[in-house]
Amino acid sequence: MKSTLLLLIFLVGSWTDPVAAQSSIETDPGYVSFADLNDIFGVAPKIEANIHGAILRLVAEAAELEDPELADLLRRVRGVYVRVFDLNRLNLDTVKSYKDRVSRLLVEGGWDTVIAVRKRNEDVNMYVRLVDEEIAGMVVMSINHFDDETAFLNIVGDIDPEQIGRIGRKFGASRVSDF
């Protein structure tokens, strides 16, 4: 009985590892949660990626054969989170006000603005957070009327802003990549 109980505790403890891995990334200074997006927008994203921990290493390993440079980039980051929504299914005002609110919160939280572009068909903001003069995370938010898409991307870890496109493309946020 005692050994069964111990085995159960061991198994439960082991399977809760993902939760532990996730909560550790959530306390990372470079992490920004887009978890409430589905509720705010009222629809599910057309692309959702939550890549961290062992699955990130798996993706990096898989990238090694086709694109070793991308694999190296992925090994340096701790998490990649992507949400891409179809603009046609959304209320544009809701999207804009969400983007503005997150931008304000990021700046208040010590994030630096790298890009803030507002054009007729494109609206893009990029932020980085520096910790001890190193990049701890990056956020890109874009509203694109060419593709009728709005994308939210958060990369946790040390990433050169010029390389963001390679990671964005890998996870389906191709428009974000152009910046």
Binding site: S14, D17, P18, P45, K46, A49, N50, A54, I55, G172
Partner: peptide, 24 residues
């Protein structure tokens, strides 16, 4: 304990990838 890694909803196809970690 399953985590959603990737979900893609295309015009005519939907894909889900879920995974569980154990000892990293």
């Amino acid at each position: 304990g399953w985590e959603l890694a990737v979900k893609v909803r295309d015009d005519d196809e939907m894909v889900w990838v879920l995974y569980r970690e154990w000892y990293d």
